[in-house]
Design a protein around this nucleic acid. Sequence first.
DNA 1: ACGATCACG
DNA 2: ACGTACGTGATCGTT
Length: 907
Amino acid sequence: MSEKLVLIDGHSILNRAFFGIPDLTNSEGLHTNAVYGFLNILFKILEEEQPNYLTVAFDVSQPTFRHKMYAEYKGTRKPMAEELREQVPLMKEMLKAMGVTIVEKGGYEADDILGTIAKRSEAEGLEVSVVSGDRDLLQLATDHIKIRIPKTKRTGTEIEDYNTKEVLDKYHVTPIEFIDVKALMGDTSDNIPGVPGIGEKTATALIAQYGSIENCYAHVDEIKPPRASKNLKENYELAQMSKTLATIEIHADIDYDLQSARLEQIKDLYTEEAYLLCKRLEFKNMLGRFEVDAPKNQAEEHFKLVTEKKEAEKIFAKIKGIECAFQIIPMEEKKDANMDAGGQMNLFAAPQTNEFLGMAVCFGEKDTYFFKAGEELTSSVLSDLLTHSEAAGYMTLDLKPQLGLLHMIEQRENGCLNQKNIFDNVIAAYLLNPLKNEYPYEDIAKDYCSLMIPSRVDLLGKSGYDLAMDEKPEGFLKTVCFMAYTAFSSKKAMMEELKATGMEQLYETIEMPLVFTLADMEHTGIAIDAANLKEYGEKLAVRIKELETRIYQEAGEEFNINSPKQLGVILFEKLEMPYGKKTKTGYSTAADVLDKLAPEYPIVADILEYRQLTKLKSTYADGLANYIKEDGRIHTSFNQTITVTGRLSSTEPNLQNIPMRIELGRLIRKAFLPAKGCVFMDADYSQIELRVLAHMSGDEKLIEAYREAQDIHRITASQVFHIPFDEVTDLQRRNAKAVNFGIVYGISSFGLSQDLSISKKEAAEYIERYFETYPKIKTFLDGLVEDAKKNGYVTTMFGRRRPVPELSSSNFMQRSFGERVAMNAPIQGTAADIIKIAMIRVHDRLLEEHLKSRLIITVHDELLIETAEDEIDRVKEILTEGMQQAADLKVALAIDLHTGKNWYEAK
DNA sequence: ACGATCACG
DNA sequence: ACGTACGTGATCGTT
């Protein structure tokens, strides 16, 4: 069998990948989508073809001969998008790292290089595949040269293949004739002028009949229709030039050594260099290909396993007076002491004494230990050893879940390990770059120590830690040791970076203390009346059943109402309702679309109610019940490193989106109860974001407005529309309120017009009047966008940063998004900073005064305290003062405070 | 795994 | 001409 060569049109495939794959950016801000897409196509082709040779051709950036000819004819090509341009050198670097032969030569386009190499190689008896996104290359197709055109589809990449036969079938001309077709019809994207008035149809017909442009002219008077004949006669030179432009050079003067392009096996591409580059570009799922080749890290040689208590004590004694990193992996599910795997009682099982599987400790380049929890050296013993080790300072990755295991919940101190001397590298990494979704240890090691270390997935695969401990003890040990090693090694650089970016204070006085506050809140949890929840769910079920029956009747058939796809077909095809919007996948059935149809079609109103009720039942009534623990309470997780603005988020379950706006949903809050002898005390900031805006912009009129009126939206309306306060209509107030919201979101006339159902022009007028009334707000917001453009980030009052990479995008939509983000982030972020300060103060105060009351929930601008009945007055003072004095603004930080015997009443 | 939808601030 | 308000998470259906 003959040998195989794969030739790739570098720029063309890069280009295709760039437009086919949504924007990807690594944490350095490098755009990487094109490189990523290119590699995917490359690997797919290689795996399919298993070629013996591989070569990639690139254009050189200077204008080429063919290009120049056309440039004289009509301007120049459109410049390449910046996000793509920066990926060209990156792509070449990647290919070089993989040892792939790259051919490029000034004066030639990639087409010419591909054509020349393809023809030469064919002559030498090879099977050639040319991979390109460009149909121009079809002229090269023969029985031994296959043109492969990848298409990015939703289902993945599909490749169209063309040999002579496929070209004939699809275009009704031979590959050589294809040149002439192209020359006649022209191609704007390829800068081929073509003959005016001749399109694809005529060109194909002419060439199919006459075989070439030259022969067309030989018979030009026979040609029909006469219009085509006339056009041809008048544009002879243009046709000639087009043909030259369309013809790919196959005798280019290039040096190409086939043997140096040899590829023994695909695995040869997975070099260490390429691995490192993939890591840098953060192509995580690409790394799987490199399995065996992950380079070893020096530190790994010094990881030691310790199981003896005596030895452990000796090692912990060494930590005194120096810094030490520790890392515990909590058990994913607490194993019940007396149950066996099947959940049966097992009276003979040893009692479960270990709360965690082991602890890694690192206090030097050559001192990383893994202490495996066992019978004598229990997790509790390990905790004590650590907390009494008298280190000068500690570091760890993701402290919060470890605090309980170290017996530090609700205790401000435990031995010498106290909250003042712990550094959490993940929290620091989040502050330094809040854009990432996760902060795995290998990223921290890479970003702050330039260390390349194997990731958890490299070492353990995708299995959970618990399983890994049993199945891959080696990998488990290494993972935890690498985490401690990373925490130890990166602290210094991270601390310096925090100082350099002005976030040291934010880190030390807000984020770190908050870790302890949140741990306490999660630990306390909130009580739920399961019976109440169940009853509520049953009530919903009855009504849902009714609605279901009616909807099926009205539709004339049964279908899945929860499927937007099926619902779309029923409403817009079967029942022929006018559809408003469309989504990528079909008709939109979103609430705002259905709202407009509801008055006319009873079925739509029923569907809306059905949606509402099933949402309440599945997410809240049934959903929350699954999270009730043995203590009758729900313990949510407050995540501190998720949002880009500095807010917290809540998961498993999310207690920050419990229904409120609609009465029926709001009733769920009656199932949230205070402990016996307690009431709920709930306080929320009144328009904190608008107040922050007033302060940060320094706009006197808005500040003044806050000093005198309770109803800020009404006074805004009065000032913007120049009417007396008492004469503001409800509509005017509603409009003013929408504008106030819009301002905080980074206003756009389109967004406001959508919200108020008015024209874009009217919305623009509102905004203009608003800015006339409060001129400093406009100056402030414009300044934020300017800052963001200049620095690449914006900051909150307390120094929190939000990078805004979208502002440098060449895409209008992305850039506009960047502008809105630049306006919103400092406001939303400052509000988040403020409530965090309040939380810490309130929480700490409750502990200092040894009160029984506990802070248990936060919802962005709201705090909920489970308050002992005999402490109500004092807690009210603490909460009020804690929230109002959290920041010193030019306007007061007003709060609304309520108490009640459940969350419904307290809010 | 991802999009559509909808709950909250 | 482009085509959107800012920030989240859970559930469901579809791929």
